[in-house]
Amino acid sequence: METLTSSVPILPVFLSMFLFIYLLAYFGVFRNWSSKHRPEASSCLISLAHGTPAVILATCAMVTQSQRGFASANTIFQNLVLDFSIAYFLMDLLHYLIFSPYDILFIAHHLATLFVFSTCRYLVLHGAFAPLVLLVLGEVTSVCQNTWTLANAWKADVPTAAKLYDLLSLPFFVFYSIVRGLAGPLFVYEMGVFYFSGEADNVIPRWVWISWMVIVIMAILLSILWISNLWVELYRERTRKVENKLK
């Protein structure tokens, strides 16, 4: 497929779409929620609007396109998917800066992701295959994660939400652990082997792909740390429930 050198700017369109969804969630869908949970719920809704479509689009961009190498020129379709995700992360970053400015972990995650996607999309115009695979690995758990997050926020007030939270916790943690703890590191290893061979240096500057590798490795490690803490918390919750029943 033709590579993208110039096109109609689609990023503002996607950004406007996610802004509309966020405002619709905040002032419409979750208007009866407490001020404490409305921003988080609205963030979850735009995440849901991004996650599954991003997985489908990125998969199509990889499966149907001939450019699948780590150093291949970006196609129009691949750049469109990158713009779609850049718009989402910009919108969600704005959410965190306004409502959770002290959530340094998520802000850093979004800034790092934006750096990788933006440099691939607008600076080097090559190597979209790797970010798109990472996008699939990052967003394939989106539906489970956001449903679990919403249930967690509501579990203290709604019995159904508490049941859903308990039902989802174990399968979500297992799914997330496999994707982020096994599939992710294996793919990052393949990236490293290719980039360190020097085969991409003529189209992707060394400082760019080294930055990508550092960011992705840090993201994988933080994801493993995050899910590990949740496993510990789940174990404590289940142990506490068992002890209470035995009393």
Score class of each variant (00 low, 15 high):
156 A>E: 10
157 D>R: 08
157 D>A: 09
157 D>K: 10
157 D>M: 09
158 V>F: 10
158 V>N: 06
158 V>R: 08
158 V>L: 05
159 P>K: 09
159 P>A: 06
159 P>W: 06
160 T>D: 07
161 A>F: 05
161 A>E: 11
161 A>K: 04
161 A>M: 01
162 A>M: 00
164 L>M: 03
165 Y>N: 06
165 Y>M: 06
166 D>T: 04
166 D>Y: 10
166 D>A: 11
166 D>C: 09
166 D>V: 02
166 D>E: 05
167 L>K: 13
168 L>Y: 07
168 L>H: 13
168 L>D: 08
169 S>D: 02
171 P>W: 05
171 P>E: 12
172 F>A: 05
172 F>T: 00
172 F>M: 04
173 F>M: 14
173 F>S: 04
173 F>V: 06
174 V>I: 15
174 V>N: 05
174 V>K: 07
175 F>Q: 00
175 F>M: 14
175 F>G: 03
175 F>N: 04
176 Y>E: 04
176 Y>T: 03
176 Y>G: 11
176 Y>D: 09
176 Y>W: 15
177 S>P: 10
177 S>Y: 03
177 S>A: 12
178 I>C: 13
178 I>H: 01
178 I>N: 01
179 V>M: 02
180 R>P: 09
180 R>H: 11
180 R>D: 01
180 R>N: 06
180 R>A: 02
180 R>I: 06
181 G>W: 06
181 G>P: 00
182 L>M: 15
182 L>N: 13
183 A>K: 00
183 A>S: 11
183 A>D: 00
184 G>V: 05
184 G>F: 12
184 G>P: 05
185 P>D: 14
185 P>W: 09
186 L>C: 10
186 L>E: 05
186 L>D: 12
186 L>K: 07
186 L>R: 13
187 F>G: 07
187 F>A: 02
187 F>P: 01
188 V>Q: 09
188 V>M: 06
188 V>P: 03
189 Y>E: 10
190 E>F: 12
191 M>S: 08
192 G>D: 14
192 G>T: 14
193 V>E: 14
193 V>T: 15
195 Y>K: 07
195 Y>P: 10
196 F>Q: 13
197 S>P: 09
197 S>M: 12
197 S>G: 15
197 S>Y: 08
197 S>T: 10
198 G>T: 09
199 E>V: 08
199 E>R: 11
200 A>V: 02
200 A>I: 02
200 A>Y: 06
200 A>S: 15
201 D>F: 08
202 N>V: 14
203 V>D: 07
203 V>I: 07
203 V>W: 01
204 I>Y: 08
204 I>A: 01
205 P>V: 04
205 P>Y: 07
205 P>Q: 10
205 P>T: 03
206 R>H: 11
206 R>Q: 13
206 R>W: 01
207 W>G: 04
207 W>L: 08
208 V>W: 03
208 V>G: 00
208 V>Q: 00
208 V>M: 03
209 W>E: 00
209 W>I: 06
210 I>P: 04
210 I>M: 14
210 I>C: 14
210 I>S: 12
